[in-house]
Computed example of a mutant assay.
Amino acid sequence: MSDFVLDPRLERDTTFLMNLGLCQLRLMEDSRWPWVILVPQRSGIIEVFDMTPLDQTMLTFETAIAAKAVKQASDCLKINIGALGNQVNQFHLHVIARNEGDPAWPGPVWGHGEARPWDPAARSTFTERLLEAL
């Protein structure tokens, strides 16, 4: 993992929360949705199939525990999980809490309006609930 470097756009748009094992868990800096990303700490990974079978298995496990924690911490209706990579080539997986009536419901969150920074108290509350759920 010593050659792992986080893409500058992911670093700019997210806040590091913790290492899960394979992945960094990072909070998206957009308060409209409780939204985290998982970034496998491997260099040169663009697609999920670029990872070893063991890393793919670890990613699946870490995705499930992160998604369950986001659902518990946000009390949302639905979890969306996706890996697009159209703007940032470095493989990363989005885990997004969704509710009926949220700003993009029922469509995708990508490209919908402008990101809204977290209120520090709301970020702290969500982060504490998320980390406790993990």
Rank of each mutant, 00 (worst) to 15 (best):
G44I: 03
A122H: 03
V5E: 05
L130Q: 02
Q56M: 13
D50C: 08
P53I: 07
D102L: 11
T127L: 05
I37K: 03
L20P: 02
M58D: 14
P53Y: 15
E47D: 12
D13M: 02
L20E: 13
D7Q: 04
D119T: 04
A97C: 04
E114Q: 15
G113N: 12
G101R: 05
L130F: 02
L93I: 08
A115G: 09
L6Q: 00
L93E: 10
E100Q: 14
G44C: 06
G107D: 10
T52I: 02
S43P: 10
L134G: 05
P106G: 11
L54E: 12
P106A: 15
Q87I: 15
E132R: 14
Q72M: 15
S43K: 12
N89Y: 15
D7H: 11
S2R: 10
V70H: 04
V95M: 00
R42S: 04
K68E: 06
L59S: 02
E100I: 12
D55P: 00
R98N: 09
E128D: 05
A69N: 06
K68T: 13
L93F: 05
P103R: 08
E29I: 12
P106C: 10
P103Q: 07
L130E: 00
N19D: 15
D75G: 13
Q90N: 11
S74K: 01
F91R: 06
Q56K: 11
F49A: 08
F126L: 12
W33N: 05
T14F: 07
D30P: 05
I46R: 07
I79E: 09
I37L: 01
R12F: 13
N19F: 08
P34G: 09
A133Y: 05
W110R: 09
I81G: 08
I45N: 03
I65Y: 08
W105F: 11
A66V: 02
C23G: 05
L131N: 07
W33F: 04
M58R: 14
L77P: 08
